[in-house]
Design a protein around this nucleic acid. Structure first.
Lengths: 208, 208
DNA sequence: ACCTGAACACCGTTCAAGT
DNA sequence: ACCTGAACACCGTTCAAGT
């Protein structure tokens, strides 16, 4: 008993550090205890078990992210700004989104942007079920994109395999297309283009 | 030595069964050995280790899925049909996509649809880098959506937390919107609507 | 070439016991 | 209320030894 009393907050903080630096797999109860200088079993008293510790970590981080404020003049650009901001926040915490995925907490991660999206969609003239669908389409689009992005980064040496897609239309009729597909993706660019395209269509539905 | 010679194919088959039924976490080398009636270490001789076993599983399944043929008359509907088919194939194998995600093999799962998407985007009049971007936007959209979908199913009891989004614009100005957001998502419907919206915009860029 | 058991270095979790 | 060590039931992987 050489250390000051252990607190739940202290445990979460140390766990967060561990996950931030080396990913969720590096978070072991024993390793955490060692870092804190306590017995493994003390941790259980404060946070229950590993699963609820991870849940608490997600909750902590999402709260820390807070709500997202749109910028821009038209509803479309404002929605795109929210999407980009949300992607930025999530992307800055790649390990968190790994946890979010494995613990099935995607819903939670939708929320920081929800308020803002609802407001913008509404002011773009969408109402009722159609507005809700637009909000959700954007939420799924953003979170889905980030999930794919992080999964790709996890294994950067993608062995594309022998199943080269080319030689059909691309290589013969449109070499520029083939070249573009052979180049690595620019995620930020692709993201913005995708969201812009999606939002444009969604908002256009209001003017029918 | 009471059993017939162990083969790599036999190992993969048993592993596939295990993953299909109880998910990747249920695939342990020891459990697999027990099911096959061999020593754990025999498996290592045939497949290397657990990681490459999982990789082989993904490869096997994606090959089994094969290429995807579009249906419909216009490029837009044909692309949407490809997207829906790809989602269907992936969604029918929720455990596979869990593996895909944790092993970072998203790229691989893009391929079955790539050929078809390239052809349709091309016949819709898109060329070069712009066409490639459209193909990728759809690929990311589909795979991202399925990832989110599967993560949500993993934890169906989503504790939304106290951070209810309502009461801002929705509840007061547009109760129908609030109600729609409170209802659970219909993923198939949302998926189709999202892809349709995205594709519409992407193809419209060709006619500028 | 293929299979084996034993051993190593890990896990998360429980539980009775301490203060 | 909080902390502890010991123990249980697992993991993946390696390795020397067998046939």
């Amino acid at each position: 008993m050489s250390r000051t009393a252990l607190t739940r907050e202290e445990v979460l903080e140390a766990a967060d550090d561990l996950v931030k630096q080396h990913g969720p797999d590096a978070l072991t109860m024993r390793g955490l205890a060692a870092r804190l200088g306590t017995a493994v079993t003390s941790i259980y008293w404060h946070v229950g078990n590993r699963e609820s510790l991870l849940d608490a970590l997600v909750e902590r981080t999402v709260e820390e992210m807070g709500a997202i404020q749109p910028t821009g003049r038209t509803p479309a650009t404002r929605i795109v700004s929210v999407a980009r901001r949300l992607r930025g926040e999530l992307h800055a915490r790649p390990h968190l989104i790994a946890v979010v995925h494995e613990r099935g907490l995607t819903e939670r991660v939708f929320l920081p942007a929800q308020r803002a999206l609802v407001r913008e969609v509404h002011s773009a003239g969408l109402r009722g079920a159609r507005a809700a669908e637009a909000v959700r389409a954007v939420q799924f689009q953003v979170v889905g994109f980030v999930l794919v992005e992080c999964a790709r980064e996890l294994a950067p040496a993608q062995a594309t395999g022998r199943e080269r897609p080319g030689k059909t239309v691309s290589a013969r009729k449109d070499p520029a297309l083939a070249r573009a597909l052979a180049r690595p993706v620019d995620p930020e660019r692709l993201f913005t283009a995708s969201v812009r395209a999606l939002v444009k269509s969604l908002l256009a539905q209001g003017n029918n």
